[in-house]
């Protein structure tokens, strides 16, 4: 498949004490929803901060929309096209809803106040009550704060959204709504809009994920279209008697007294000949866990 990229990065590097983000090549496809998956501390937020332009102390180059690089991004009004939401303290804690609305209007030409208010209503930011613009942001729950961030970023004219852990503070119903919103955003863009989001809730976000990037200890360890990954990795289940032989072949394996279950690389399937195994298409969650397990520094 011939893909266009909304972000093309090369040799992205950022060092912390005891941690190095080191990404020789990063390509985020245009027109798709790309999920960034990885353990805590894998460097997902660091990467997203760099891409969103809220961290500038990194090496390497990043090119956006095939139009400008990360240096040019800081000039003029280039960030207008990129929407970002992050975990933690996104807004100044003393701000009220009214201030969020007014300051957003000052920050971005493409911010639509009416759309923001209608999205707040749609997402029930104030529950069943009326829109209380005097309410302080710090008084909302984490889930509601995320709803406000999403309403804010979706009320702008953007070509790309970078969402750091948007699903984490949300309830299952709202996660479903988030998927709907992501799909809606991409559809409205007619292939010109893209979304890059990080998540630990891979199962909930799977139906909206087109492309996945899996990170471990500051590096990309796997990436590809979800449909391609599902061809590359096969879920295999077998009997207990074969588990030791399977252990040597499978990419990752879980065993119990009755048998084993694991992820096998499609190219290694032939090696399982002679074993009594069943094969299934794995979910993105299963692939992600397998890849993370295989690359994790955690003792198992």
């Amino acid at each position: 498949m011939n893909m266009e990229y909304v972000i093309e990065g090369s040799n992205i590097e950022k060092k912390f004490k005891g941690f190095t983000l080191d990404i020789p090549k990063l390509n985020i496809p245009k027109g798709l929803a790309t999920a960034l998956i990885g353990e805590n501390g894998a460097g997902k937020s660091t990467l997203m901060n760099i891409l969103a332009g809220i961290r500038l102390d990194h090496k390497g180059t990043i090119r956006y929309f095939n139009e400008f690089d990360h240096m040019e991004r800081e000039k003029g009004n280039k960030k207008e096209k990129i929407g970002y939401t992050g975990p933690g303290h996104y807004y100044l804690p003393q701000w009220t809803m009214k201030q969020v609305e007014e300051i957003s209007g000052m920050m971005f030409d493409g911010f639509h106040k009416d759309k923001f208010e209608s999205l707040c209503k749609e997402l029930a930011v104030f529950g069943a009550g009326p829109l209380d613009k005097g309410k302080k942001i710090s008084s909302f729950s984490d889930g509601t704060k995320m709803k406000i961030m999403l309403a804010n970023v979706l009320a702008r004219d953007t070509d790309m959204l970078i969402l750091d852990e948007p699903a984490s503070p949300l309830d299952p119903l709202m996660r479903d709504k988030l998927c709907e919103m992501i799909q809606g955003y991409l559809e409205e863009g007619n292939g010109e809009r893209s979304i890059f989001f990080s998540t630990h809730n891979v199962s909930d976000m799977e139906n909206v994920t087109d492309y996945a990037i899996i990170m471990e200890h500051g590096q990309i360890v796997e990436e590809g279209l979800v449909e391609d990954l599902k061809e590359k990795y096969i879920l295999v289940k077998g009997d207990a008697e074969d588990k030791e032989r399977a252990r040597e072949i499978l990419y990752t394996i879980n065993t119990n007294n009755y048998g084993f279950e694991g992820i096998c690389l499609a190219k290694d399937l032939d090696k399982l000949a002679g074993m009594n195994v069943t094969k299934e298409i794995p979910s993105l969650y299963q692939i992600s866990v397998a890849v993370m397990k295989a690359n994790s520094l955690m003792e198992r």
Binding site: K75, G76, N77, E80, G88, Y90, L92, P93, I103
Partner: peptide
Amino acid sequence: GGFYRKSNSALEYLQTSNR
């Protein structure tokens, strides 16, 4: 309040704008 604090994570939103 707290605007000059080192590593003030509450500035993330403002940082996303060129303005």
